[in-house]
Simulated scan of single mutants.
Amino acid sequence: MKSTMSVSVALVFLELFAISSFCSGNSYVGCTDSEREALLKLKQDLKDPSNRLGSWVVDGDCCKWAEVVCSNLTGHVLQLSLRNPFRNDLRYATTEYEDYMRSMLSGNVNPSLVDLKHLTHLDLSGNDFQGIRIPKYLGSLKNLRYLNLSGAEFAGIIPHQLGNLSNLRCLDLSWSEYALQVHSFSWLSGLSLLEHLDLSQMNLNKASDWLLVINSLPSLKVLKLSDCEIHHFPPLPSGNYSSLNALDLSKIIFITLFFNTAAGFLVSVI
């Protein structure tokens, strides 16, 4: 009996010790094997002339790698920020622009990315994917809240699979030198939580439904359409625009503009 009680007391003590360690921040959970392998496959398909991903090594803890953020509780990868750390701005010194060019990732985006099932933040902006298409499988990352492909030099038509990202709050597809295209915005209607949408420098000539669909997004606060190709700006449909508070229509090419300003529609032109 005493032996049994001693074992029980020991187990309780160990449990309390584990809880105490967790609460005091001493508990650490490293990355999962499957997610580490997914990131290593992603690295293999990327060209990285400045060795930005040098910390991504076999048998390493991916939660300690550069550009990776994991959950402290589960070890799952939550954020992958592979944006170019230098700004593409010719007003800066030539040496900094050269650093920007050298820091570009290129190559391909490996489908292993879909194995990061808990990913909420993905940023590939400022890199040079040299005219490849936006991968359709990005639409499988159902937990994404933030997706930034700005200036990453993707080309072609925006895949409708992005409409599966129902948790998305911010979507930035702006400033591709290859002029991304949208033939229909029907996929966008599934993003009911979207707050920030940047489609600057996009070809919208064939997307006659763009204003109708954007009007249906109940949470949209910021809309950027700078330098877009829009050959017709239809009358604003009736609807509730109370959530929208910032609108950028600068440098739009050849538009006919007509607004039926709805009550409560406050627009700040950026």
Rank of each mutant, 00 (worst) to 15 (best):
L40K: 02
L42H: 02
L42Q: 04
L42S: 09
Q44A: 15
Q44K: 12
D45A: 12
L46H: 01
K47N: 10
K47Y: 11
K47R: 12
P49E: 04
S50Y: 08
N51E: 13
N51M: 15
S55P: 08
W56A: 03
W56I: 04
V58F: 07
D59V: 09
C62G: 06
C63Q: 01
C63R: 01
A66L: 15
A66M: 14
E67H: 14
E67G: 04
S71L: 01
N72M: 01
L73Y: 12
T74P: 03
H76T: 10
V77F: 05
L80D: 05
S81N: 15
L82H: 04
R83F: 13
N84V: 09
N84D: 05
F86H: 13
F86K: 05
R87F: 08
N88T: 02
D89A: 09
L90P: 09
L90C: 08
R91T: 13
R91P: 00
Y92I: 11
A93V: 04
A93W: 05
T94C: 06
T94R: 13
E96I: 12
E96P: 00
Y97S: 01
Y97F: 10
R102I: 10
R102C: 09
S103I: 04
S103P: 03
S103W: 04
S103V: 12
G107I: 06
G107D: 06
G107P: 02
N108F: 08
V109K: 00
V109W: 00
V109G: 00
N110C: 11
S112Y: 06
L113H: 01
L113V: 14
L113T: 10
V114A: 12
V114P: 05
L116R: 02
L116W: 14
L116D: 04
K117M: 12
K117H: 14
L122P: 02
D123H: 06
D123T: 07
G126D: 07
N127Y: 05
N127A: 09
F129Q: 03
F129D: 00
F129C: 03
Q130L: 07
Q130W: 00
I132F: 00
I132D: 06
R133S: 14
I134C: 05
I134M: 03
P135E: 07
K136E: 15
K136G: 13
L138Y: 11
S140E: 14
N143S: 13
L144V: 07
L147M: 11
S150P: 00
S150K: 07
G151Y: 00
A152W: 01
A152N: 00
E153F: 00
G156A: 10
I157H: 12
I157K: 13
I158H: 02
H160N: 13
H160F: 12
Q161V: 13
L162H: 02
L162E: 05
L162T: 06
